[in-house]
Deep mutational scan, measured.
Amino acid sequence: MIVFVRFNSSHGFPVEVDSDTSIFQLKEVVAKRQGVPADQLRVIFAGKELRNDWTVQNCDLDQQSIVHIVQRPWRKGQEMNATGGDDPRNAAGGCEREPQSLTRVDLSSSVLPGDSVGLAVILHTDSRKDSPPAGSPAGRSIYNSFYVYCKGPCQRVQPGKLRVQCSTCRQATLTLTQGPSCWDDVLIPNRMSGECQSPHCPGTSAEFFFKCGAHPTSDKETSVALHLIATNSRNITCITCTDVRSPVLVFQCNSRHVICLDCFHLYCVTRLNDRQFVHDPQLGYSLPCVAGCPNSLIKELHHFRILGEEQYNRYQQYGAEECVLQMGGVLCPRPGCGAGLLPEPDQRKVTCEGGNGLGCGFAFCRECKEAYHEGECSAVFEASGTTTQAYRVDERAAEQARWEAASKETIKKTTKPCPRCHVPVEKNGGCMHMKCPQPQCRLEWCWNCGCEWNRVCMGDHWFDV
């Protein structure tokens, strides 16, 4: 396979590697080409510095992935760790964990309700045991953590790749202090920090972006993250068709209702045909949960890209028209025109101005929308079919299609509260000796007794199943 190397943020060049090629071997190839010592090179990928003893497969490097290699003399205490030698983080029983690669970060837990604080980093599902597709590297999971809308060759929703760059020099040479644990960490600028490894760059702020994971991409090709779309790892039924499908869209209502993408497309087109989208002054033209839940309008309007190009163009047109109407304007009634106009409040005669090729020149009556006339309008008909009709959803289907309910059931079956801080902690095999993952707590306690870890627990039921 081919990976592209950008040395000291210059133009990239291809390097041929195998899945079992080590990072140090990659350094040696680059060092020979650039005429520099291999031990002064640092390989940066997806916000993480890659260790010498890791392989291309370990690092989730795919065909035509772009890695950054910078030349920086080692500072005291760094060289041993980078070589894969006596790194205290690798000691058996050590409590410190390697910062998780962005290629394996899962933010789907952050669609849980606000009262489930902490689960994004504490609760991990076991539903990723799908067998890898044919042709994928051994052991590589097909679980997708992110979804994007690819405006490039795909023109559809695709699995996405999370990447990070330095907000100062805009190069992907920043190593994160810690990985993101929720969508806010990724979507809110300057929320996460790190250290830029580019020479002479003092940058410390992280800037995240997404790429389409279905095809090789260049540095400049980015895609918009659709953070309401998630892999259906909890096997929730769709609120409309009641099938279990994946991926799904999880509405931001209190129940976190789930809808499959085909039904979401149908829901949007139906509402669009009836012009029953909601115009929100802050958000724009949007839709609420299909069950009509309060405070559930979709905030990231790129989710409506699921409509496809033709329907999305209609959505944008109707949204612009609705904006004009909300501002007190009118639409030209001549067939084939429909231009938005903003006449004076007491102006009865409205002319669709033909300047700049935008208007048709038609003069019409503001009251009856017919060709302009003197005197009273002959008839004014009330528009028919403008009443909002509820999208029919079966109550039982709505009850079963809740992301929140599956989460709470998982928590109930696989977790116990920490005796000190009461945060839910998952036990997935292993011994009875637990350690609270909350940095402010870190209590060592017994899963069996529910009390602080002691010699009695150690001698009596340390390794009970």
Score class of each variant (00 low, 15 high):
Ser145Thr: 11
Glu370Asp: 10
Val29Gly: 04
His265Thr: 07
Arg33Tyr: 05
Pro137Leu: 11
Gly118Cys: 05
Ser233Arg: 10
Gln316Phe: 07
Arg72Phe: 13
Asp87Glu: 14
Pro37Thr: 08
Thr410Ser: 09
Ser198Trp: 06
Ala230Ile: 07
Pro202Met: 12
Phe264Arg: 00
Ser116Val: 05
Gly284Gln: 04
Ala38Tyr: 03
Gly359Leu: 06
Gln440Ile: 14
Gly47Ile: 00
Pro419Val: 05
Gly85Cys: 12
Tyr315Lys: 02
Ala225Asn: 03
Tyr147Val: 02
Gln197Trp: 07
Thr242Gln: 15
Glu382Trp: 09
Val186Lys: 01
Met432Leu: 05
Arg348Ala: 08
Val29Trp: 12
Ala397Met: 11
Pro439Tyr: 07
Val15Leu: 10
Cys150Lys: 02
Lys369Trp: 06
Trp183Ala: 01
Leu228Ala: 05
Val15His: 01
Phe7Ala: 03
Arg455Cys: 15
Gly329Glu: 03
Lys27Met: 02
Cys268Asn: 01
His215Cys: 11
Thr217Gln: 11
His265Gly: 08
Lys435Thr: 15
Gln438Pro: 01
Arg104Glu: 11
Asn52Ser: 07
Glu79Cys: 09
Leu287Ile: 09
Phe7Asn: 03
Gln276Trp: 04
Glu444Gly: 06
Met432Val: 04
Ala230Phe: 07
Pro437Asp: 07
Ile44His: 03
Ser223Lys: 03
Ala214Ile: 08
Gly203Lys: 03
Lys32Glu: 11
Arg392Tyr: 12
Thr351Val: 07
Arg170Phe: 06
Lys220Ala: 13
Lys412Pro: 09
Asp394Ala: 06
Ala46Val: 03
Gly340Pro: 15
Cys59Asn: 01
Phe208Tyr: 05
Arg366Tyr: 07
Arg163Tyr: 15
Val121Ile: 08
Arg156Tyr: 07
Arg72Trp: 14
Gln57Met: 08
Ser167Tyr: 06
Ser384Thr: 12
Leu228Asn: 08
Asp20Phe: 05
Leu41Gly: 01
Asn58His: 12
Leu119Gly: 15
Val244Glu: 04
Arg334Gln: 14
Leu272Glu: 01
Arg245Ile: 04
Ile142Leu: 11
Pro343Ala: 09
Ile411Arg: 10
Phe45Thr: 05
Gly203His: 02
Pro180Trp: 01
Ser384Tyr: 10
Val186Ala: 04
Gly340Ala: 11
Gln57Ile: 06
Val157Leu: 15
Pro343Arg: 06
Gly319Met: 07
Ser22Val: 03
